[in-house]
Design a protein around this nucleic acid. Structure first.
Lengths: 196, 196
DNA sequence: TTACGATACGGAGGGTGCTTCCGTTTACGC
DNA sequence: GCGTAAACGGAAGCACCCTCCGTATCGTAA
């Protein structure tokens, strides 16, 4: 594991590990944040998120000093999940892995649209966040795509950057719904697939 | 004049004209809003804007019931200005008019970047705003471009849509400064110009 | 010119949401 | 068990959006 969502405490460094209750609350808050942003986007209030995590606002602010820090943490953890998904799919045959990962990507992209304004702010405050995520997602995309290509299941005249560009752009289009995106993904997959 | 920034009272319709003080305050508020958004973007508060216009908040809210209404009005008026600029330049020779208008366009685009978040919200609430502005700006662009083309001063294998796409995209690029954009505009103009 | 009704003004205050502060509670090493 | 550092919780501070209504001003008709 590399750059990750892990709070404040690296592998074997100076600082102690978090206390058990702190760790538990951190995880709860992150999850509550994810749900809240997904459901209510920028409308989600800090009080609301704390309540959902069964925690006082004070605790929320101890872990995430500013609202934007929570936004960033949720985003980082979503990217982690997406990247990890590529590893999980390694057991499937190459084509299924590619197709499965792109589905995961679409869900990821869809969830981002809801709190895009907040996210944009986070990127502005911390440009490294955008760059870093792009690289990591690109690597994951590449890993599933190349495997499919090497297995002769996907055409070789596209690369991961093309794919992200195509599908990412599609997902960001103004009125795109999840269903529509999944349908269009099917179309794209048909275009990429090499019939056995 | 067509769709415009004019508040609540058309040409010769049912409603009376605005009272003189109301008209004056409306204009002041619009101007104060423009300045405030340009300087402080989304940070600008309603109290602050009202004070700058030498007016109470109550008056601000009478004219612009919600913050977003002020954002929209400022934006509409900026578009008005940009579109009117094309008419003003009609006395110049065709190439100067084209070049001058594109400079105005760049200033317009630059000012939009500052309160992009607010603007995005306004577009979301009122899609007709984005569409309408695009059409009007496109028409203005077309008028100056076509004239330059007919005068043999600009190459004819591009149209207004291409131009807006190129220059608009350039202005929206993440870290673009006004100077950089003006320099790049020079570059684009060189590419479009037909030497006499 | 004055008087009067319609219109507009102003700013105190309600409501909400982010953030801070600090007294209380809890986990963990001895 | 005990002591201490770490973490918790929520009341209160603050800033901002917006509303409300008593007061002031404009425009008009006598």
């Amino acid at each position: 594991m590399t750059t990750s969502t892990a709070p404040a405490t690296g592998s074997g460094d100076a600082r102690r590990p978090m206390r058990a209750d702190a760790r538990r609350n951190y995880d709860r808050l992150l999850e509550a944040g994810r749900v809240a942003f997904a459901e209510r986007g920028g409308e989600a209030s800090m009080e609301e998120i704390a309540k959902h995590a069964d925690v006082g606002v004070g605790t929320l602010y101890r872990h995430f000093p500013r609202r934007i820090d929570l936004v960033e943490a949720v985003y980082r953890s979503d990217v982690d999940t997406l990247v990890a998904e590529a590893d999980k799919l390694v057991d499937l045959e190459p084509w299924s892995a590619l197709s499965g990962w792109l589905q995961a990507f679409i869900r990821y992209a869809q969830s981002k649209r809801v709190f895009l304004t907040e996210l944009r702010e986070a990127f502005e405050k911390n440009p490294e966040l955008a760059l870093d995520s792009r690289v990591r997602i690109g690597a994951a995309a590449s890993s599933v795509l190349v495997r499919a290509q090497q297995a002769g299941a996907a055409r070789t005249d596209i690369d991961a950057a093309d794919l992200m560009h195509l599908i990412g752009g599609m997902c960001m289009a103004r009125a795109a719904t999840l269903e529509q995106n999944e349908r269009l993904l099917g179309l794209v997959l048909d275009g990429i697939k090499i019939q056995p």
